[in-house]
Amino acid sequence: MARLLIVHHTPSPSMQTLLESVLEGARNDEIEGVEVVTRPALGATVPDVLAADAVIVGTTANIGYMAGAVKHFFDTVYYPCLTDTTGLPYALYVHGNNDTTGAVRAVEAIAKGMSWERHRPPVSVIGEVGRDDREACWELGAVCALAALERSGEE
């Protein structure tokens, strides 16, 4: 069975809404053969990443950067996973009150350093979460579940 890992920092109602939308898309009844595993960023481990066929990262944008919890996740898994996860499909969703540019840039730089492959452009949400944002996160979850299935060779 393919495995989609969702690593998230969800400290606010807005982030909870985005996470729920990602999960709904990833767990779409039309997609079979994918186990969806969610981990808070501070609890995600090297074995979680090594077992994943695709990863979605969800973070807030804090003072022009990703959440500290997400940075901790990357600090924890970077070297232990560096050579064994080359080509891993990943995607990102970010919420900020006024700007997400720095957070997106930081996550993409680390993922590039790990030789992960961005599967979709980031979903970047500023301010109130709207219907289009929820739909974009639903789609992100669904297409990343399919990416996990494809990488695992289970399709």
Rank of each mutant, 00 (worst) to 15 (best):
Y65H: 10
T10I: 04
A145Q: 02
D133C: 04
G130M: 01
Y90S: 03
V129W: 07
S152D: 03
R131W: 12
H8Y: 11
N62Y: 14
V22E: 12
H119M: 15
S115A: 15
V123R: 09
T59G: 02
V143W: 10
L92C: 13
L23G: 03
N28M: 06
D132F: 00
Q16P: 00
P122T: 12
V49N: 07
E108P: 06
V57A: 10
V70E: 12
A69I: 05
D75L: 10
H72A: 15
I63P: 02
N62Q: 15
L140D: 14
M114G: 08
D53Y: 02
S12H: 00
V36T: 02
E32H: 09
L88F: 05
S152M: 03
D29L: 11
V55N: 02
E108F: 11
E139R: 07
A142I: 10
E20S: 12
T76E: 08
M15F: 06
P11G: 04
A61I: 03
L19V: 05
L19C: 01
V123K: 12
A67C: 04
S14Y: 10
D29T: 14
N28I: 03
T100N: 07
V77S: 09
T85E: 15
P11Q: 02
F74N: 06
E24L: 15
A52T: 00
V46M: 11
S124L: 04
V7Q: 06
